[in-house]
Amino acid sequence: MRNEQGSEERRGSAQDVTYRWLKGHIAGLPRQEGSFLTEVGVAEAAGTSRTPVREALLRLQAEGVVQIVPKKGAFVPPISDSEVQAVMQARGLVEDWCVRQVTPIVEGLAEDLDRLVTEQEDLSEDPVAFIDCDRAFHRTIVRRAGNQVLADFYESLRERQVRMGLHAVASAEDRVRTVLDEHAAIVSAIRSGEAERAAHAVSAHLASTLATLNLPAIVDWGSHAGGSGPVVAS
């Protein structure tokens, strides 16, 4: 019984290591080019066996990061500029509305976000964990707004955001520090209770993400999200 349990733990650990290796590797691939990965190639590069590679690839397929093609391997699809624009524009609309809802009324939110910023800073040397924490930061704001329909829609964008976020962190030398500073600015604005200031901080953060991906910012009108001025969605 103990041997079986120990075997399962080692297998899970190998899968997790391979999963994280794959995410880091995929982050470094050219965003606008498709690539194929093979179980054998990944196993050799990651220093593991093919079984955890297969399991990690299935996990990534479930997240929408890769597409497994029988007898060929796992295909990492390209991410077009138009897809980035569409996904980030949707993020901007949702996050603008949500941060305006939570800023004046949600108690304890700033403290919860402060803890996530501190945790994210501790993860600055681990791009995959850093992006996971980044997503938790934004998800917390969206969920605390209390609109389950918007929260579910926002979560549906998650798969597309993973590789974009990893690519943004990997492609800019000082991006980690910039993200932390921008998150701190969002927390400060929420703590102030000024909804307009908080919405502006979120917009500035998302616009800088698009700039990191070498794409122009998209300007929407805040009236779509309940505001009164332009909102930069990214």
Rank of each mutant, 00 (worst) to 15 (best):
K71V: 08
E83L: 14
V87N: 11
Q85D: 10
E63M: 14
Q89S: 14
P52S: 10
V66F: 10
P70R: 04
E55T: 07
Q61Y: 01
G73I: 04
T48R: 14
V84C: 13
P52Y: 09
S82N: 05
V69K: 04
R50V: 15
D81A: 12
A86C: 02
S49Q: 08
V66L: 12
Q89P: 00
A74W: 04
V66D: 06
F75I: 02
A86W: 10
I79Y: 04
I79D: 02
R59K: 14
A56L: 02
Q85Y: 08
P70C: 08
E55V: 11
F75A: 07
R59S: 15
V84N: 01
E83C: 01
T48C: 14
L60G: 01
P78L: 13
A86H: 10
E63N: 10
V76F: 13
L58T: 06
T51Y: 00
V65I: 15
R50F: 00
R50G: 00
K72E: 13
E83V: 08
K72Q: 14
G47Q: 06
Q61D: 13
T51M: 07
E63L: 15
S49H: 08
V76R: 08
D81Q: 06
S49N: 07
E63R: 14
V76W: 11
P77C: 05
I79A: 02
V76N: 07
G47Y: 03
V66A: 12
K71P: 00
L60V: 03
V66C: 12
T51W: 03
R50M: 05
G73D: 03
S82P: 02
F75L: 14
A86Y: 08
Q85N: 07
A56I: 02
R59E: 13
T51I: 12
M88N: 10
Q61K: 11
I79R: 08
T51S: 15
T48S: 14
A74G: 09
L60W: 01
E83M: 13
A62P: 03
Q89V: 13
L60D: 00
F75Y: 15
Q85P: 01
R54Y: 13
Q85W: 07
R54E: 10
L58Q: 12
R50W: 00
E83S: 11
V87H: 10
F75P: 00
V53A: 01
V76Y: 09
V69R: 08
A56N: 00
V66I: 10
G64V: 09
